[in-house]
Each structure stands twice: as C-alpha cells, then as structure tokens.
C-alpha cells in the first residue's frame, strides 16, 4: 500500500499535464470555424479545398458539419466565423436579421431521387420531379424524409408542395428519419424506400447496396449553396478578417476553379457559381 499510493497520484498528475500540454499545442494556430453541412463535408470537398487555401493563406479552417438548420442556429450564436449552407430563404433571413454580413452565391450541385433497383413506383428515368412524386404518393412504396429541418428537408417539402401533395406525417408510406443525410440513406436502404439526396452525398456514399439513382436533371432539383460571413458586430471574437479572406478566396477565380476541379470517382460534384454565371452569359 505504500508503493501504490504515489503511483496513483503520479498517474493522475501526468494525465492532467498531458491534457494541458495538448491544449496549448492546438490553441496556438491561426484558424477560423466554418459552420457547414454534412453533405459538403462528407463528399470530401473540404478535404480537397481547405489545404489549398491554407497553403496560400496560412489560415486553418475548422469545419463543423451539421444540418443546415443547426449550422444557422450555431452561427446565430456566434459559434462560427463563416457559414456555407443550402437553404436560400433561411440564408436571406439570416442576413436580413443582421446575423450575417452578406450572402454570396458560392456553388451548386443538384438533388436526385434514389430508390430500390426494382422501382415499385416506376419512376426510373423521369426528368419531371412533379410526376415522379405523384407516382410515389400513388404507390404504396415507402419514402424516407430527413425530417430534421435541414436544407435537404426544406427542399423536399418545397418539392412536395409544388407537386400538389401534402404527405400526412402519419402516412404509413412517408417516414421521417429525423437524422442527417447519411443516416437517412442507411434507413432508406434498410427499408427498401425512396429518398431525396444531394448528388454529392450519393456519389460518395459507401453503403448504396442495390439502390439506384432514379430521377435527376429537373431544374427544380438545383441545389445552390451560399457563403456568408457571420456578423462580427453581433458577437465579440468573430474572426472576421480571416473569415473574409477565406470567402474572398472561395469566390476568386482560383477558388472557383478549385471547386470545379474537385472530383469523386472522376465525376464533378459541385459547380462554381461564378464560372457558371459566366458560362451562362
């Protein structure tokens, strides 16, 4: 008992010391916090972009990937310096309420509808979302909704409304997952159900099993992302200068080209807003 007591005390001290040492090591860097969505993070886009930006600017970007709704709430509390989300109406409200400085179009990808390979609702190949959704509602085939107030969830509700269908929350074919995109996909695959998913997440998703991409290409399925600097006037401590540097880089020709250059399995997932606008002109 004499030998053991000091060892325990020593072990405890060591633990606390290592914890503190680790703390100071990470706190020294120059960094900003980016509140963004799981879809962009999970696609690997940031893993590609951020090292490029860091090499240029020396600024580390720390990504907190959550649903669009939560990203907006976190940013409203000042817990982030830059926001990249996809829910246009909510973004505009965020800026209008003074939480953000300005919103810039950053890039876009698109949503697709995926479902089981045997496609019991028979929507494969449709390019018109409205008729695809009507067929889905008409069949008994299950559909899984994010149900989490994310950008994707908001988009999905808008699409149902446009198709003139109001799925009752208790309808047996309409299920709300209340989860992120990946979890929702896992559920849809487990249930042999259809779901709406952004193309980036779908392409980089590892557990597709027999599910197929069934509906794509409707302009209504466009999924634009905006970037916003969180208003430094609202909360002290927001790293506005470095945040603005990041936004400027993203919107610069270099940044936009980098977004366009990002590929998963050889496929481009995100289409930069500025070069697109130029291409359209």
């Amino acid at each position: 008992m004499r030998a053991r007591k000091p060892t325990l005390v020593l072990a405890l001290l060591l633990l606390i010391l290592t914890a503190l040492a680790g703390q100071t090591a990470t706190a020294a860097d120059r960094f900003i916090i980016l509140q963004s969505t799981t879809s962009t993070e999970n696609s690997g886009l940031y893993g590609y972009l951020l090292p490029l930006f860091r090499a240029k600017s020396g600024i580390e970007v720390r990504v907190v990937a959550v649903g669009t709704g939560q990203a907006l709430r976190n940013a409203r509390n000042g817990d982030g310096d830059v926001l990249i989300v996809h829910a246009r109406a909510a973004e505009d409200a965020f800026v209008a309420d003074g939480h953000g400085v300005t919103r810039h179009d950053l890039m876009a990808n698109d949503f697709v509808i995926v479902g089981p390979a045997d496609d019991p609702a028979g929507i494969s190949g449709l390019t018109d979302t409205n008729s695809a959704l009507r067929r889905l509602a008409g069949s008994a085939a299950p559909f899984v909704s994010r149900g989490d107030d994310s950008g994707t969830h908001k988009k999905e509700r808008a699409l149902w409304m446009a198709a003139g269908i109001a799925p009752a929350p208790d309808a047996s074919w309409y299920r709300e997952a209340g989860s992120g995109m990946g979890a929702t996909l896992n559920i849809a695959i487990g249930m042999d159900a259809y779901t709406l998913v952004d193309r980036a997440t779908w392409l980089s998703f590892g557990n597709r099993q027999d599910h197929r991409l069934l509906v794509e290409g409707d302009p209504a399925l466009q999924n634009p992302y905006g970037v916003i600097l969180v208003n430094p006037a609202r909360h002290p401590g927001i790293r506005a200068v470095d945040g603005q540097t990041f936004i400027d880089w993203l919107l610069s020709p270099t940044g936009q080209a980098a977004i366009a250059a990002f590929r998963v399995n050889g496929k481009q997932l995100f289409f930069p807003a500025r070069s697109q606008a130029r291409a359209g002109e």
């Binding site: 990946g182 896992n186 998703f205 557990n207």
Partner: peptide
C-alpha cells in the same frame, strides 16, 4: 458516427 453517415459501415 461520421463513417456511418458516409455509409462506410
């Protein structure tokens, strides 16, 4: 949790 959400079960 992240790998699950990416479908990398």
């Amino acid at each position: 949790a992240l790998e699950t959400s990416k479908g990398n079960l």
